[in-house]
C-alpha cells in the first residue's frame, strides 16, 4: 500500500507541475525600473557630453527599512568621455551600484564599485539618443502595465498620431479604459527586436520599432497571448524622448518555425 501512496503523491506533484507550466517561465522585467535606469544614463550623456553603453542590469535588491528603504541594482557599462580635437578615446569599463527610490521609478545616485580604463582607444559611439529612447519605450510599457493614463499621456507630443491594434480604440484616452475592461488577473509584456533609426539628426528625430509578447491571465483563469508590433516616431526634446507617432499592430503569434513547412 505504501507505494500506492507514493504514486498518489507523484500524481499530485505531476498535476502541480502541469499547472505551473501554464505560466511562462520568461523572467519578468520591471519596465519602470529599466526606464529609470536608461533615463539616468541618458541624462548623464546629455550633461557630461559622454556615452554610457549599458552591458547588463542586475536584479533589484530591496535594502533598508522605513524612510531608508530603497532598491539597489548593479549595472555593468562601458563609458567614454568626448574630448575636443580627438576622434578616438579610451573607454572605461565600470560596474556601478544604482540606488533607486522605493517606487523603482527614479535613480537617486550611483556608486562606482569597479573601474577599469581600456588599454586601447576606440571611436566615440554616442549613446544619448538610444538611452533616452529605451527609457521612453520602457516607461511607455510600464504605463500600459499599470494602466497609468497620465504617464502615457506625458510621453505624447501635442498633435501626435495614435493608432491602436484594436479597431475599437481610436485615441489614447480610450486605450487605458479598454485595457482595464479586460480585467486581467495578471499581465506582462516581454519586449524584443528594438530598432532605432535616425530620421533627422538636426531635429533629433528617430523611427523606433519593436515587438512585444503580451501574456495575460483572464478572469476565467485562461492564459491569453498576443504578439504585437510597435512603430514610433520620436523626437528628443529637453532631455526626454517624446512620441509624435505611435502605431501598434497584431502579429501572428510566433510558433515553431521549423514546423512551418510551405508547399
Amino acid at each position: 500500500m505504501a507505494w500506492w501512496s507514493r504514486c498518489a503523491q507523484i500524481i499530485v506533484l505531476a498535476s502541480a507541475a502541469m499547472v505551473a507550466t501554464e505560466v511562462p517561465a520568461a523572467e519578468q522585467v520591471h519596465h519602470g525600473l529599466q526606464a529609470a535606469i536608461y533615463q539616468w544614463y541618458g541624462k548623464l550623456d546629455t550633461i557630461m557630453n559622454a556615452s554610457h553603453h549599458l552591458l547588463s542590469i542586475g536584479q533589484p535588491r530591496h535594502v533598508g527599512q522605513g524612510d531608508q528603504a530603497h532598491v539597489e541594482v548593479n549595472v555593468q557599462l562601458e563609458s567614454q568621455e568626448r574630448r575636443l580635437g580627438q576622434s578616438h578615446y579610451p573607454g572605461h569599463y565600470e560596474e556601478q551600484v544604482l540606488h533607486i527610490s522605493g517606487t523603482l521609478e527614479r535613480v537617486l545616485h550611483s556608486q562606482s564599485v569597479l573601474y577599469s580604463l581600456d588599454d586601447f582607444d576606440s571611436k566615440y559611439r554616442p549613446s544619448r539618443a538610444s538611452n533616452l529612447i529605451k527609457a521612453l519605450v520602457f516607461s511607455w510599457t510600464h504605463g500600459l502595465d499599470t494602466y497609468d493614463e497620465s504617464a502615457l499621456q506625458r510621453h505624447l507630443l501635442v498633435n501626435s498620431t495614435f493608432v491602436a491594434a484594436e479597431l475599437r480604440v481610436q485615441k489614447l484616452i480610450d486605450y487605458v479604459p479598454y485595457l482595464r475592461s479586460l480585467n486581467y488577473l495578471k499581465n506582462h509584456r516581454n519586449l524584443n527586436k528594438l530598432n532605432i533609426e535616425t530620421l533627422n539628426i538636426e531635429q533629433d528625430t528617430y523611427r523606433v520599432t519593436y515587438e512585444y509578447q503580451w501574456w495575460a491571465v483572464n478572469q476565467q483563469g485562461e492564459s491569453e497571448l498576443a504578439q504585437m508590433a510597435v512603430e514610433m516616431q520620436v523626437q528628443i526634446i529637453a532631455g526626454r524622448a517624446m512620441i509624435s507617432l505611435y502605431k501598434e499592430t497584431y502579429l501572428a503569434p510566433i510558433t515553431d518555425a521549423g514546423a512551418e513547412v510551405r508547399c
Binding site: A17, E22, E222, E224, L225, Q227, Y250, L251, P253
Partner: peptide
Amino acid sequence: RIRSWVAVIAGLLLSANLWAAMPILKGVG
C-alpha cells in the same frame, strides 16, 4: 522494483498530460 513501477506510472501520467493548456491567441481569427 516498486521504485521502477512508480517511475513508469509517473512517466505515463506526465506523458499523458505533457502539454500545457493552449493559450488564447489574441489578434488572430
